[in-house]
């Protein structure tokens, strides 16, 4: 397996046919633990057809709105997750990353961290960004630990910004600068 922009050790990056991606995404979001770690909006269980339709619409665009990748297991080629670099400010070279591993048996084993490494390498060496931002829910401590490990720094806390099961939770803002990423990569 080559070690290039799209290939790590544990995982590699792909663009999926709409059917395959819709099938996995529809299944992942039926797991409310995954959905509540990832998204703030109340969950809607979308049909595979609807998800497929969004992907197809996205594929029709001449220029992508963001840079979205699906993540596969290098060993068995299973589709396990995704990441997207969104809201790219062309004038400031900042972007917000969203990342998720949808298959629970891959959690806590370094697959997400490696996907994040590939995402940052893409952000800094291909998109030539200056920094990458993210928001993560304060109760997602596993993700926060992994983002620190990937070199992200804490940039602030949006106090009590979520309500789940009757309790208020903070949203954590993190970011990594190009120079911080380069110092680690060196």
């Amino acid at each position: 397996m080559p070690n290039d922009l799209f290939h790590g050790n544990l995982v590699y990056l792909t663009a999926e046919e709409p059917e395959a991606q819709a099938s996995s995404f529809s299944r992942w979001f039926q797991n409310t633990e995954f959905a509540r770690l990832l998204a703030i909006a109340p969950e809607i269980l979308w049909s595979q057809n609807k998800i497929k339709e969004w992907i197809e619409k996205d594929y029709e665009k001449e220029k992508p709105e963001g840079y979205f990748f699906t993540v596969r297991d290098s060993q068995n080629d299973r589709l396990i997750g995704f990441f997207g670099l969104w809201d790219i400010d062309v004038n400031h070279l900042n972007s917000i990353i969203a990342i998720g591993i949808g298959e629970p048996e891959y959690w806590g084993k370094g697959y997400g961290s490696e996907a994040m490494q590939l995402a940052l390498r893409y952000a800094f060496t291909e998109l030539n960004l200056h920094r990458v931002s993210l928001f993560v829910f304060a109760y997602n401590t596993r993700a926060i630990r992994s983002y620190y490990k990937s070199g992200f720094q804490l940039e602030g806390i949006q106090r009590k910004a979520m309500l789940r099961d009757g309790e208020r939770h903070d949203i954590v803002a993190m970011g990594i600068l190009r120079e911080e990423w380069e110092a680690r990569a060196a």
Partner: peptide, 16 residues
Amino acid sequence: IEEVRRRQALNRDGQR
């Protein structure tokens, strides 16, 4: 209250 500081997120006239 200032809650988040996105470091160097803006570039204006070459200054971050």
